[in-house]
């Protein structure tokens, strides 16, 4: 969306978003998280895999703000690098789901008939298994690793996008400007890309934002179960899982990865809720 015309829906939504303090807070925190993730190499005080067995199980101190883990690795650095992994998995998985789900949903809504029937029945099948369970089953089959984790989460997220985009397409397709474009000889692709998609941008942006939160949560859940990111890579869920073994004496280890997940999810939710209110002021609660 390079062009933001004055008084366009997007422009009005952005104006409304600017008045929502919680959404702005969420956005600010996300900026910080993305920044630290991108420049983790310069910001993190230590390397995420650097072991120092003489300094293992150090509680938070000046040298190690978040303490050290069972191998003497700096937890702050691992949390920072973990953000890189979580954001990467969340964003790539949702982008994948948006792309596939979007194409399927747009095709189903636009062409209707048999295409619609087939696409939506397949989506119904995927929806008939609870989302986290579907991800777990797929990840179990694909095996551990970041790419497989992304695929498992993306597949489970696809039906939601297909449904929302199909619904949006159906609500727009009856409008006169679509008919006008068709009369002028526009191709189907052109109509979908140029006329229909921009008009359901609002619901797509909202769903995408909220879904990145869901995806990050799913990624850490899977890693917690040992299905996602493997050691020594510092995934927040995997770090929590490892810290569980030292609850009795070194509880600080469980605090920071959990906080990191919570803060990330919360800012995405604030931003997503704010975007929803901004794009659909009538729905405002």
């Amino acid at each position: 969306m390079a062009i933001v015309r004055k008084n366009s829906n997007l422009h009005l939504a952005l104006i409304r978003l600017r008045r929502n303090r919680l959404a702005l807070l969420g956005l600010a925190v996300l900026f910080v998280l993305v920044f630290t993730a991108v420049f983790a190499d310069f910001i993190a005080p230590y390397d995420y895999a650097e072991q120092d067995l003489l300094e293992s199980f150090e509680p938070p101190s000046r040298a190690h703000w978040f303490g050290t883990d069972e191998f003497g690795r700096d937890i702050l650095s691992r949390v920072i690098y973990g953000g890189r992994i979580s954001l990467q998995v969340g964003i790539v998985a949702v982008a994948l789901a948006l792309f596939i789900g979007g194409m399927l949903g747009a095709a189903a809504g636009y062409y209707g008939g048999r295409v619609d029937e087939v696409v939506m029945r397949v989506m119904d099948i995927l929806i008939s298994v609870p989302r986290i369970l579907l991800s777990i089953a797929i990840a179990a089959v694909l095996g551990p690793g970041m790419l497989n984790l992304m695929i498992a989460i993306a597949i489970a997220a696809t039906p939601a996008f297909a449904r929302v985009i199909r619904g949006a397409v159906l609500s727009i397709i009856g409008n006169e400007y679509v008919e006008a474009a068709r009369c002028m000889g526009a191709t189907d692709t052109w109509i979908i890309v140029r006329h229909i998609l921009p008009n359901c941008m609002g619901s797509i942006i909202v769903l995408t934002t909220l879904d990145v939160a869901t995806a990050i949560l799913a990624a850490s859940s899977l890693s917690f179960l040992g299905l996602g990111i493997q050691p020594p890579y510092p995934e927040w869920g995997a770090m929590l899982s490892a810290a569980r073994g030292y609850l009795r004496d070194d509880a600080y280890m469980t605090v920071f990865p959990g906080l990191a997940i919570m803060i990330t999810i919360m800012s995405l939710n604030f931003l997503g809720d704010g975007l929803r209110d901004a794009f659909d002021p009538k729905q405002k609660r």
């Binding site: 850490s220 917690f224 869920g237 509880a251 469980t254 959990g258 919570m262 919360m266």
Partner: peptide
């Protein structure tokens, strides 16, 4: 409620064990 939506289930579980069991 916002905190509750954003906290991963397994973290809540670990924290509950930490306080109420350990």
């Amino acid at each position: 409620a916002m905190v509750g939506v954003s906290m991963p289930n397994f973290w809540i579980g670990v924290l509950l064990i930490l306080f109420f069991s350990v």
